[in-house]
Design a protein around this nucleic acid. Structure first.
Lengths: 209, 209
DNA sequence: CCCTGTGAACCTGTTCACAGCG
DNA sequence: CGCTGTGAACAGGTTCACAGGG
């Protein structure tokens, strides 16, 4: 526990800063000011400085931030300076789409295995992994030191999958099933509820009429 | 604009309340208290009452909330008491997975069309729609009164797709491309950055060691 | 003079606590 | 007596504003 009360929205923005910095690096920009960074993300410059300030002193007064060192620092903070192995549970439409999604690898995540209970899916090749049976999960999780998992199974089986993941030593779950998952306290869950996201948009539209 | 300063986290939770209420309804539970609802979502009872209080008085002291009327009220608030038509832009892996996802329809959303620029994809049937060319967007948007769109295209084309959507009168965009989209002020964007979500989990794990 | 880092002020959202109704 | 609805107290985050370094 080395957390000194960092606002969780600040951590969310860290990913955005990193993304923007990677664009700048690709465009061979060497340095950037907080107000430039803020501008492209539609937030204030003070916000950028404060967020970065939670983690250290990365800038130089009168100059700004050097792009490359800041990228490395942010990756280190986020834990993506080394490859993170990930498993995907559920090889339905969504699971298969995630297995083929290239965005994860670019950000330092490596999907090392996929799992399903359906005999019709087990054994099939998707992306660069073969779908395995759920019973193989503990062995794979141990072998590849997997800490992160993605749940892309139907709502009804989400909780039992979660239990299996907790037992297998997974510490973070990205959950696409529309359900609240019960976990051991050392496991973090991040929900992604697609229908609820559309509902939020629907509300925004409805209330601005 | 009938918005009387409602905290946006409260709106997010509205979707969770609705989801839980629908479960209760399926289990033929007729009424529920704020503390019951709160318990299953891991929040406080006061939070539930305050959130609902922003939108009206739905409960009865000493009794609780009647499940069915509250469901109807929440759907009305979220604008999903009538079907909302949606278009999906991009018929790659993710787009096709979304086209087949049943969760949207259950919540009152109807995907009426999919679009892509690639000639190899246009004309193909996915789920219950046929993939159309981007140039057909304005006609379809008008014909079906589409207000919501989902962007599932590569990052590079996300902005030009956004421009087309704004011109076609779309008011809400669910954006899977890892990019900040520039829109006209009357268009709401909700980002879903899958890699960034994994980064958040990675951070949580890294900082609890 | 430009730009960072950071206390202080401000604002937004959550929790408390209780009055009041069934 | 149980449970809602809601002001009041509190906590968490954001913005301000400025001191200080290059």
């Amino acid at each position: 526990m080395k957390n000194r009360s960092i606002p969780s929205p600040a951590v969310t923005r860290l990913s955005l800063y990193l993304r923007e910095l990677e664009h700048l690096q690709a465009a061979e920009v060497a340095k950037v000011s907080s107000s430039q960074l803020a501008g492209s993300l539609h937030i204030t410059d003070a916000q950028v400085r404060k967020d970065l300030g939670y983690f250290g002193q990365f800038g130089r007064p009168g100059v700004g931030y050097r792009v490359e060192p800041l990228i490395e620092a942010l990756r280190h903070i986020l834990g993506t300076d080394r490859t993170q192995n990930v498993v995907v549970i559920g090889a339905g439409d969504l699971g298969r789409a995630l297995l083929r999604y290239r965005g994860f690898h670019k950000k330092g995540f490596d999907i090392v295995a996929a799992f399903d209970i359906s005999a019709s899916k087990v054994g099939k090749q998707v992306g660069h992994v073969k779908v395995m049976d759920m019973s193989d999960l503990p062995a794979i999780a141990g072998k590849y030191d997997v800490k992160l998992a993605v749940i892309a199974v139907p709502t009804e089986s989400a909780q039992q999958v979660t239990d299996a993941l907790c037992s297998a030593g997974i510490k973070g779950i990205l959950n696409f099933a529309p359900a609240i998952l019960e976990t051991t306290p050392d496991v973090a869950v991040r929900p992604v509820d697609l229908a609820a996201s559309l509902e939020q948009l629907s509300f925004t539209i409805a209330s601005s009429e």
